[in-house]
Amino acid sequence: MIEYKNVLTTCPYCGTGCALHLQVLDEKLVGVLPAKNHVVSEGGLCIKGWNAHAFVNHADRLTKPLVRRNGKLEEATWDEALTLVAQKLGEVKTQSGPDSVAILTSAKCTNEENYLLQKFARAVIGTNNIDHCARL
């Protein structure tokens, strides 16, 4: 049985919120199609949206966390990686104060994720050094 469908999603590249369809043939991602009657993008996309399918199965995409050990990146578990990050951030905060940490978040995150990051910066780290890549 041949299966072809379009899965509606939101472009992950910036905060505009353009809609796009991921074209799926026999459960494989084969391309992008704009969503014509969507209120935000009205059938248009920029060059990034048009290529939004390209990274999904790209060979360079990280699928596991990597930790640098002896100058070399090695595969690690999420627990290992997150514990290391927490420990290092804690060290920096204790040694140099909370304002020595800055957090730069992303337009690729959802509103809710961005909210969580500013909460993390202010309530956990204790700094107002929180900014966003869309300002660049």
């Binding site: 049985m1 041949i2 299966e3 072809y4 379009n6 969507h38």
Partner: peptide
Amino acid sequence: DGVIALRTGPGGIVAPYLFS
């Protein structure tokens, strides 16, 4: 094996589809 036509999806957004 299938008919290519348009199908209304989530939010009333239309896209090509293979009906079977």
